[in-house]
Amino acid sequence: MQELKAQAPDLSPSLSVIDGMQGFFHHAQKKGYSGVGVYSRVTPSEVIVGLGDEEFDAEGRYLEARYDSPHRRLSIISCYFPSGSSSEERQQAKYRFLARIAPHLRALRQSGREFVLMGDVNIAHREADLKNWKGNLKNSGFLPEERAWMTTLLTPLDQGGGGLVDVYRHLHPDTTDACYTWWSNRGQARAKNVGWRIDYHLATPGLAETARAASIYKDSWFSDHAPLTVDYDVSL
């Protein structure tokens, strides 16, 4: 889960544990802002809160649950990338975050750890990932620099990239309007399905190969985002 907008005292016992799943959280220092979490039926062997970066750790943007055994080193990461749409200052913060997290993920990948980063990345990678791509070429979320960053992240390690896989596109390579996960609250965007695909599962290749199905839940609306679910054939 991303963009919790809650502090630890705000979470009642019914929100700390849901249907037998224990919650682990990284709260922002600012009230009503950001925050990420992971709910898990299996107790992690370690929970890492934050990237070790003062600027972004204060904003509650990264939580990694590790499930390590003699046979596997696996991480589940919840991450909320900054949005740069509100101002140039926030766009520059977004670029700083991208510059900070890319080598972190590459180092995890090079270490041999399998992981999936699930999060609101606030970037539509390709023209197929948003309805009105021509009208957004100069807008945050579809800027050339952001899209190039995504391309590098999804480039194999031996070609100088981050070596990760966009799992939804791995399972659904064809372009369809069903891929969108976010809609503006303005201009009846949701009713007209004028959306963006900015929520991702970004996985190491070994883990991505175990993905069997991906779906975007739209039967009920919880926010301006729709939940993205991927089923993996892997045990913790």
Score class of each variant (00 low, 15 high):
Arg197Ser: 03
Ser75Gly: 13
Lys192Trp: 06
Phe56Pro: 00
Arg126Pro: 08
Phe97Ser: 02
Ala65Val: 07
Tyr180Gly: 00
Ala178Thr: 10
Leu117Val: 15
Arg113Gly: 06
Tyr33Phe: 12
Ile101Leu: 02
Val116Leu: 04
Pro82Asn: 09
His225Met: 02
Lys31Asn: 12
Tyr200Asp: 01
Gly23Phe: 01
Gln7Ile: 07
Trp133Met: 12
Lys192Val: 07
Arg126Ser: 15
Ser34Tyr: 00
Ile18Thr: 08
Arg106Pro: 10
Glu59Met: 02
Ser16Gly: 13
Leu207Cys: 02
His201Trp: 09
Gly206Phe: 07
Lys134Met: 13
Ala226Asn: 12
Phe81Met: 12
Ala203His: 01
Cys179Trp: 03
Leu105Glu: 08
Val49Trp: 05
Ala178Gly: 06
Tyr80Ser: 01
His26Tyr: 00
Lys218Gln: 15
His26Pro: 04
Trp182Phe: 04
Pro82Ile: 00
Leu15Gln: 14
Trp182Lys: 00
Asp120Glu: 03
Arg106Ala: 13
Ser16Val: 11
Tyr200Cys: 01
Leu153Gly: 04
Gly84Leu: 01
Val116His: 06
Asp231Asn: 10
Arg72Gly: 09
Thr210Lys: 08
Gly37Val: 02
Asp233Glu: 14
Gln110Asn: 11
Pro70Gly: 05
His170Gly: 07
Ser69Cys: 11
Pro156Tyr: 05
Glu89Gly: 12
Glu46Arg: 14
Gln29Leu: 14
Lys31Pro: 07
Leu105Thr: 12
Lys31Cys: 06
